[in-house]
């Protein structure tokens, strides 16, 4: 983690689009009168979904909507690392580099990102399609190493697989999320080894013995 500051490069204005304005109203309505400030994280998140990152005009717009001082919204935006304070590419690649992923080779995944996106994290690639960043554990350690693109997890990666994945995105495809080595979710490679008895799943073991 490093010092989080607003980007030097800021758009002139921000406004929620109609659909998101409705979502914002719904979030604000969840809190009692006088406690509207509680919706600040939700509103910034909606704003980030719309713009890809949190901008200065967005912070000010949210502050005005919730009758908060600007500094209070800035505090929230800089506190949570889930808010991107720099512009992001069309596809935001979040690479997990926490211990399990690192042990399983996340360095190769990072190297692939450096090669195919940009040498430094938080930098938009030349074609504007990607930016990447390291993140802490995303909770898919069984399928390490993994990364997240948009809202989807891509798992069981290595260097070449990551490169192929990024190239697929670059050419406009949307690869299927999930395990990258053919296994089903987090089952062992080659299929399940335990809990294979079908009776487990049809209620067989729970069935009362039939009366003689």
């Amino acid at each position: 983690m490093s010092v989080r500051r607003l980007s030097a490069d800021q758009p002139a204005s921000f406004a929620f689009n109609d659909a998101n304005a409705v979502r914002c109203e719904r979030e604000i309505a969840k809190y009692p009168q006088g406690r509207q400030a509680s919706a600040v994280i939700a509103l910034l998140w909606i704003g980030q979904e719309q713009e890809g990152w949190v901008t200065k005009p967005m912070i000010e717009a949210v502050a005005k909507m919730l009758a908060m001082p600007y500094i209070r919204v800035l505090e929230v935006a800089t506190f949570y690392t889930m808010f991107n304070l720099e512009p992001v590419g069309e596809h935001l690649v979040q690479v997990c580099t926490t211990t399990p992923c690192w042990l399983r080779g996340s360095d190769d995944v990072v190297a692939a990102c450096k090669k195919h996106i940009a040498a430094a994290p938080h930098t938009v690639s030349a074609d504007g399609k990607f930016s990447w960043m390291e993140v802490e554990c995303l909770g898919a350690c069984v399928n390490a190493p993994m990364l997240q693109i948009g809202k989807d997890f891509y798992e069981d990666l290595d260097g070449p697989k990551t490169e192929a994945l990024l190239e697929a995105f670059r050419s406009g495809q949307t690869p299927k999320p999930g395990a990258g080595n053919g296994r089903h979710t987090s089952e062992p490679e080659g299929g399940a080894l335990t809990l294979k008895d079908p009776q487990l799943y049809n209620g067989g073991y729970n069935r009362k013995p039939e009366a003689p």
Binding site: M1, R4, K56, Y70, I71, L74, E75, F79
Partner: peptide
């Protein structure tokens, strides 16, 4: 309310709004 604490942990800083 012009002063605030931005960032977190070791990177927490006391500042005014920009």
């Amino acid at each position: 309310p012009d002063l605030g604490a931005t960032g977190r942990g070791e990177d927490m800083e006391i500042t005014t709004y920009l």
